[in-house]
Amino acid sequence: MATRHNLVTRTVDAMRRLAPLRLADTSWDNVGLLIEAPTVRAEANRVMITNDLTNAVLEESLADKKVGMIISYHPPLFRAIKTITMADPKQAIAARCIEAGISVYSPHTALDAVEGGINDHLISLCGAGDVTCLTPAPGATEEDGELAGYGRRVTLKEPVTLDDLCLQVKRGLGLSYLRLAVAPRHRAEQSEPVSTVAVCAGSGSSVLLGKRADVFLTGEMSHHEVLAAVEAGTSVILCEHSNTERKYLQTTLCKSLNNVFAECGWQYSVVYSKSDEDPLKTV
């Protein structure tokens, strides 16, 4: 049996500390070490983090001979596969990673659910208040804390206008724009203030719909899901899918993983991909 390279072993261990896989929704998600290269690049001592493992991100990692591990928040291999061919873009990326000696790990919904994870970052942008979890993670244990699960809801200590909330979100995520659907009670001249916000990073409808809040904040929802929320009296803020996740990955996850390496005395570095970006642009 081949021996797993220290960079891979230690990165997997560190990520499982930061986002235990028991918190992931494995009823549909695919998390953990998804691609393990049988040999690792000779100079490998660096981990690259990305939201999505695209061809552009792969080319960037191949150009840096020190990258031996990629953490792709979204799993590049999602559904079961029966072949690995270069004709399929996702399979081709996996094959090229293996050939180059680069392993790939995905935390996805484990990082959404963990306390201090992506959804806690997103809810923090809305203002101070009492935060609860919308859907507890079935695999959570007592040590994971009360917030371990999918989505968050905050009751703000100081209510804000919908316009001010949008500005806070844009500043916090580094965005120039977002999409907004305004419920009738937030349209009037004397519109009601926003007291409660429910958030879910990425595609949040399965977690948010049916929950009570003045505003839903997520990456994407379908036309009819937005209509249903607005008709129920909830305004909707959409930032595009990966825009709700990227800032946390660039800042908090990079710092946290570097800290674990340093605490353990492991001489590895962590970088965020310069090629990773949301595929949708406003033109």
Rank of each mutant, 00 (worst) to 15 (best):
V260M: 04
L249F: 05
R187P: 01
A188G: 14
A201K: 00
N258V: 03
R152Q: 08
V160M: 10
Y248Q: 10
E192D: 12
L227Q: 11
S203T: 05
Q190H: 14
D163S: 14
S256V: 03
L238N: 06
D214H: 11
L167I: 11
L217G: 02
N259I: 04
S176R: 14
S222V: 05
A232I: 09
L217K: 03
H241N: 04
T234S: 15
R246Y: 01
R246A: 06
G210I: 05
G172L: 12
M221Q: 06
V182D: 03
V154H: 03
L165T: 00
V207M: 12
L162V: 09
H241A: 12
E192T: 13
G233S: 13
T155S: 15
V154W: 03
K170Q: 15
K211R: 15
A213N: 05
V160H: 03
L249W: 04
S203W: 04
S256D: 14
N243R: 06
T251R: 07
T251G: 13
G219D: 01
F261P: 04
D163P: 03
L249T: 09
K255Y: 01
A232Y: 07
H241D: 08
N259H: 09
Y150W: 14
M221C: 11
V194R: 13
V215R: 08
V169G: 07
V230L: 13
Q190K: 15
L162R: 12
R246Q: 11
Q190C: 03
E245S: 11
E225A: 15
G151Y: 09
H241C: 05
L257M: 10
